[in-house]
């Protein structure tokens, strides 16, 4: 099994480190030719969605990644990655990959001084550490989207078929259980 991590900008190395702890191979996607290598799932990391979305298009990776996700490639997205997957951005006319039936608001909690850490329940798993860094918020879900985690009434993790999106960062720290869930349930 090999997991590809979109490595255009952001904390892709942290995602790779988590999968390496689970003895799962990873590879980096930095340009179109990297899409030719074999991989079984895709990770869209945290970072700045404006940068990642722009580079996806300008490096000509956008169409192929979108069609692979539409054709069932399992994908796990955190923070900026969730913004890339969302069908609608609530404060912006931009749509990036748009493969997931969610509406998301960027920087919904405010600037860095409003970033916070908590522990919560994710898909029945207790005490998952959750860091929200200038986090977005999932405000609406289409039918068929399952809510996996919430914090104080706000949706923080969702699943739709083979797509998993979170507004927090399970890749920060050493807890591997969200990545394990992704591998076990979606691959």
């Amino acid at each position: 099994m090999r997991i590809a991590v979109l490595a255009l900008q952001g904390d892709f190395a942290e995602h790779e480190a988590i999968f390496h702890r689970l003895n799962v191979q990873t590879c980096q996607l930095r340009q179109k030719s990297d899409l030719a290598q074999p991989f079984d799932a895709l990770v869209l990391p945290g970072g700045e969605s404006t940068v990642q979305g722009k580079l996806l298009r300008e490096l000509d990776m956008f169409d192929e990644i979108r069609s692979r996700i539409q054709n069932g490639l399992p994908v796990m997205a955190t923070c900026a990655g969730s913004i890339l997957l969302a069908q609608q951005l609530l404060d912006d006319t931009t749509v990036h990959l748009g493969t997931m039936g969610i509406s998301i608001r960027r920087n919904a909690y405010g600037r860095q001084l409003s970033s916070f850490h908590t522990v919560g329940k994710f898909a029945g798993i207790d005490d998952v550490p959750m860091s929200f860094i200038r986090a977005p918020q999932i405000e609406f879900c289409a039918p068929g989207v399952e809510v996996l985690a919430e914090h104080e009434g706000r949706i923080t993790a969702v699943r739709q078929g083979n797509q998993l999106a979170m507004t927090f960062h399970p890749e920060l720290g050493s807890d591997c259980r969200v990545a394990e869930y992704f591998i076990k349930e979606m691959l």
């Binding site: 970072g47 970033s115 860094i133 960062h169």
Partner: peptide, 11 residues
């Protein structure tokens, strides 16, 4: 959290 924001800026 502050170190984490820098991690998001990487690359």
């Amino acid at each position: 959290l502050n170190c984490n924001l820098a991690q998001m800026l990487k690359g």
